[in-house]
Each structure stands twice: as structure tokens, then as C-alpha cells.
Computed example of a mutant assay.
Amino acid sequence: MPDGADGADGDGERRPGGVAAGTAIVVAHGFTGSVDRPAVRRAARVLSRSAAVVTFSFRGHGRSGGLSTVGDREVLDLAAAVAWARSLGYRRVVTAGFSMGGSVVLRHAALYGAAYGARYEPAYGAANAGGARERAAAAVDADTPERRPTVGARRRCGERRWPHADTPEPWLAADARDCRTDAVAAVSAPARWYYRGTAPMRRLHWVVTRPVGRLVGRYGLRTRIHPRDWDPVPLSPVAAVPLIAPTPLLIVHGDRDPYFPLDHPRMLAAAGPSELWLEPGMGHAENAAGDALLGRLGDWLVRA
């Protein structure tokens, strides 16, 4: 069960792959999703025609421990899942995120990527000096090899801090190369935080910010939400995009998305090097992504 890099208990699975045996696709679900939701399982099944697939539940979702921070500390859960995939021997690990998961894969690609890491290369390289020995010592739990990453993977991705105080998110690990992604696809992702321009997003904000709403989330949606506001506010998706290059980036959005209108994907695509797919007739996230789109998505992630 992939645990967050800060120790939050996780829940995840690996699905053996299709044609690209050396590639693993890590799937990041949307808010109120989980590894057991039918839409997530269907997405994993279709993507597995292209490559191996790792799915997991973010903190506070499904059987995972902890409390959801609605896209903030979830970047550590994704980083741990990516490191787990690398510990299993995959040469390429790529990420695909939906809605909240889309915002998480964008921030993850920026914060653990080449452009950002290079800014701190001397300290970064020194901190990684023992990484080869740590990777060699890492092993998947023998009793549940499909459902638990190593403790080493979690530690490499979040328990140590960046050595510079001026980083946007200083709780990230200094030793992060095993946590990086080789390509990233964000589906139905927001461009900016605190958006309330649609009725579904106003309802979501009520669930997240009100005590009664959080009770609805816990008992009605199987999602346990942290009661505190973000402090500090995490790097926004649109601010993350310029930091992702040279990692290949794909933005996918439906023209009938009831949560985020088309200015969101266009803003993301304009912020940095990327490919943009605007899908006619598509709604929101994994529930609306058809098998044909998921097949194209898997093929793009393998080729990118």
C-alpha cells in the first residue's frame, strides 16, 4: 500500500502491463476517488493495454489513512507511488492525473523535475550520494508485493527537507530523483486555486470548508478532509507548468466539463511547453474519459 512520503498510510495496486514492458503509468485519481472506484479501475484496465499501471488512493480517500488536503500534501503520496514503481524495476515511470489528481501531477512534475532540481544541484547531488546503496537495499514487502512500496521509497521522497529556505514547498525531500516522472498528463485539471465559477465547484467548496460539508465528505463520499486551511498556499498548477520542461506534458480537457471551463486548460497550455487536447463532448475527469481517449492517453505516455 503506497504510503505518503510524510508517513500517511496508503492503499495501492500494481497492474501488469501491456506492450511497453519497461514503462509504468502511475494514475492519480480525482477528489472523492480511490483505487477501488469503478471509474479508476476502468481507467487502469484500459491504460494497462499500453503499459504497466500503478494505482493508489490519496490520503483520506478510500482505505488510505490520514486526511485529504485537497491537492496539497497529496504530492507526497504521488511521489511515493512513483518511487515504488521505480523500485519494482520499471525504466520509465510516467504519471496521469484526473481533476485534483491532475493538479497534483503538475506540481509533482515541477517540484521533483529536472528544471527545479537543477536549481539546487550541488546540495541535491550531495544528498543523493547514498541513493544507489539505498535503492539496492530497497525491497517490496514479500507478503504483499503488489500492495506496498518500500519504506526507502517513502523516505527518499519526503522525510528529508530541501536544503534551501527559498523553495516554494520546503517540506519536499532533498533526495528526489527516484520520485521524478518521465512524462506527465493532466486530465480535467484546474489552472488556479479557489475557483468557484461553476455550481459544482461551489458545492465542492462547501464540502471542504464547512464542518457539515466535511461530515458529508466522510460518510457520504468516503473522503476524510483536513479541517485546516492551506498554510502556506501550495504552488498553483499554472505556476507549476513553466517548471516542468523538458519533461513532456499533455493537457487534456473536455469541452463540456461542468467543473472547469475551457479557460483552465488554455491557461495551463499557454504557461509552458505542452500538448493540448480539447475533447468534444467530454465531461469531467475519469468518469467522463472514454476507453478510446484512455487508449490514446496511454499511447502518448508510452511514446512521450
Rank of each mutant, 00 (worst) to 15 (best):
A5T: 14
D72T: 06
N287P: 10
T181S: 15
L221R: 12
D141Y: 01
A137T: 05
A85M: 08
T247I: 14
G290P: 08
L293K: 05
R49S: 06
A137S: 10
A189S: 15
G30I: 13
L106T: 02
H226D: 08
P237C: 03
L250R: 06
R161F: 08
C157K: 03
P200R: 00
A126H: 00
M100R: 06
R45S: 13
R180I: 00
M267Y: 01
R73P: 02
A115Y: 03
M282E: 01
L111M: 14
R119V: 09
F98K: 01
R177K: 04
A285V: 13
G272Q: 04
S34L: 13
G7K: 00
A114L: 13
V238F: 00
R228V: 05
P258H: 04
G97V: 11
R303V: 12
R148C: 07
W171N: 05
S48V: 10
R119K: 06
W300D: 01
D299K: 12
P273C: 05
A285Y: 12
V212Q: 09
A138Y: 08
M282D: 04
A285S: 15
W300L: 12
V35A: 13
E279I: 15
A153G: 15
R256G: 10
G71N: 05
G117F: 05
T223M: 13
L250K: 04
D141T: 14
R296E: 01
G295C: 07
G117K: 00
S103E: 05
Y124R: 07
V302C: 10
L294N: 04
T55C: 11
A24W: 07
R155S: 10
R161V: 12
R42H: 07
I25H: 06
G101K: 02
L293A: 00
A269E: 00
P248R: 01
A288Y: 09
R15W: 13
D291Q: 09
T209H: 10
R37G: 08
L262T: 11
E279N: 07
R256S: 14
V241A: 02
S48D: 00
G65C: 11
R196Y: 00
